[in-house]
């Protein structure tokens, strides 16, 4: 049985850890609120864009654009959004597992797909496994601006247009609430279900419907990536908050268990000492 001093030291160290996890939980909670607001603020832009793209696609029947057309799939692109830092529960593991499983099912060799990664955790993971990472972005701030991911979004969309791959999937953690984040797969390109919800306002286009689409579609795809990133950020803080919350709770439980053990050990020592004294006194008389 551990001596009183050992137990005491252990209690102290767990209490220190508890302070850290508690602080991280509170920081994550504060950041979560801001991330949620950012995700909210980006929504009008994305919705507006979709509206306009929709109305062009449905208003003019015979628009053709490479980003709207399905092609036979020879190569696939995956864009994976992870975090830079760990200690966020299953946040990174979940989404990375999903990607790896899909890739294993769909592809036989590394030549059949390429990866775009946002976040240090994802990059390290794929590099360790020698999977083909085409471009990466790490060290994003907690409230990423559109300019921060502009380049990766631009490249991934452009490579599709150039025919480097024939479809592009987006992987990220969808934010449901602070307790639940679901890793999701979304097909970004080719863009589909574009026609249909036709709020058929007939617009005039300058220079032409095709010309406008030319500018709009890449922008739309980039915006989808950005909103996914913001959602991912909110999920990250949600996951971290939950993970750190339960870590704090576990630490509290451990401290109370250890305190009990410590008190028992102390009591046992006292009892033993008394009985020794009593025995000694008895022997003398």
């Amino acid at each position: 049985m551990a001596s009183g001093r050992d137990i005491k030291r252990q209690i102290k160290s767990i209490q220190n850890q508890k302070q850290i996890t508690k602080a991280m939980e509170m920081v994550a909670a504060a950041k979560l609120r801001r991330a949620q607001e950012a995700a909210q603020a980006s929504r009008p832009y994305a919705e507006k864009l979709k509206e306009v793209v929709d109305s062009i696609a449905s208003g003019t029947r015979d628009v053709k654009h490479p980003m709207l057309e399905k092609r036979p799939v020879k190569k696939t692109g995956y864009l994976v959004i992870t975090s830079d830092r760990g200690l966020a529960g299953g946040y990174n593991a979940n989404v990375l597992r999903k990607v790896t499983q899909t890739i294993r099912q769909r592809h036989k060799s590394n030549d059949e797909y390429v990866l775009f990664v946002i976040g240090r955790k994802g990059r390290d993971y794929f590099n360790r496994r020698n999977m083909p990472v085409m471009e990466e972005v790490t060290g994003l701030p907690d409230a990423p601006a559109f300019a921060d991911i502009k380049s990766i979004a631009y490249t991934s969309v452009k490579k599709f247009a150039e025919g480097a791959y024939d479809e592009l999937y987006l992987y990220y953690n969808e934010f449901v609430n602070a307790l639940t984040q679901i890793p999701v797969e979304k097909r970004l390109l080719p863009l589909e279900d574009m026609s249909g919800s036709g709020t058929a306002t007939s617009y005039e286009y300058e220079p032409s419907p095709e010309g406008v689409l030319e500018v709009l579609l890449p922008k739309y795809a980039e915006t989808l990536i950005y909103t996914a990133l913001l959602d991912g950020k909110a999920s990250e803080f949600g996951a971290r908050m939950t993970a750190m919350g339960s870590a704090t709770k576990n630490a509290t439980k451990m401290v109370s268990n250890l305190t009990l053990t410590y008190n028992r050990a102390r009591q046992a020592a006292i009892t033993q000492e008394i009985s020794e004294i009593v025995a000694g006194a008895n022997a003398q008389s």
Binding site: I56, E204, Y205, E206, P207, G211, V212, V215
Partner: peptide, 12 residues
């Protein structure tokens, strides 16, 4: 320039 009641219009 765009004044009120302009025709519906989209351009980059």
């Amino acid at each position: 320039g765009i004044l009120p009641n302009h025709i519906p219009f989209v351009t980059p």
